[in-house]
Write a protein that binds this DNA or RNA. Structure first.
Lengths: 110, 110
DNA sequence: CGACCTTATGTTAAATCTAACATAAGGTCA
DNA sequence: TGACCTTATGTTAGATTTAACATAAGGTCG
């Protein structure tokens, strides 16, 4: 038995702003500078990636990716802040939750 | 913006053993002594509740509910242990994650 | 010019998850 | 006996989510 811990940043209406998948997308865009390359890298269709970004922007209220047909795509300052904040949140929550899990389920009873 | 944190207990293959919904189901069965009453209480069909219990038992590897047509349904000792362990896990993880969230997102920037 | 890269959407199909409906059977109790 | 409670499943339909396909258009480069 193991723990699967999920952290989602949502707006007031519950619309998802960030989760692990979107973190990976923004991270990939930051590295590759392209939604297309990100899609290939993550084995997703271009549209899937694009739609998730749009969803995030809608729920977040501001753009997180600046797209340019020539220069490709880059994170906006807001996008970068959001990515870094979530990355930190995710890292710490995972660590904390894993610790709690192992404390409670340490006795090899299951 | 707020945090939605989810904790799932899964087996090696990723099959869900416990989550908040199943915690509520087991908790209700413990109180009502009936899968039927639980279903009504939770506005779910009998089958939905029953299926989730079966799913949990399959992934968990042992029964968590002892059902009797006459006496109704009760948690097995394993079921009770599982419920209490998860309840504690959930409680602590939520608290820890909320704390982490408010630390990182304290500056009223979003 | 033409092949190829990029973003940007709409449309449609598939797959999956959830809910609803139906049926069965054991047992209680008035 | 018959209405009503309980557990136990199968089957079917609906709804929602995901994936696939199609198209459009701007720009680069050989």
């Amino acid at each position: 038995m193991k723990l699967r811990s999920i952290q989602l940043l949502v707006n007031e209406e519950g619309g998802i702003i960030m989760g692990k998948g979107r973190m990976d997308i923004l991270d990939s865009i930051d590295r590759t500078g392209s939604i297309n390359k990100t899609a290939k890298e993550m084995n997703m269709s271009y549209k899937s990636v694009w739609s998730k970004i749009k969803s995030t922007e809608t729920h977040f209220g501001k753009p997180v990716v600046h797209a340019d047909r020539v220069l490709g795509s880059r994170l906006t300052p807001d996008g970068r802040d959001l990515l870094e904040a979530y990355r930190e949140l995710n890292r710490r929550c995972m660590a904390a939750d894993d610790e709690i899990f192992s404390r409670i389920f340490s006795k090899a009873r299951d």
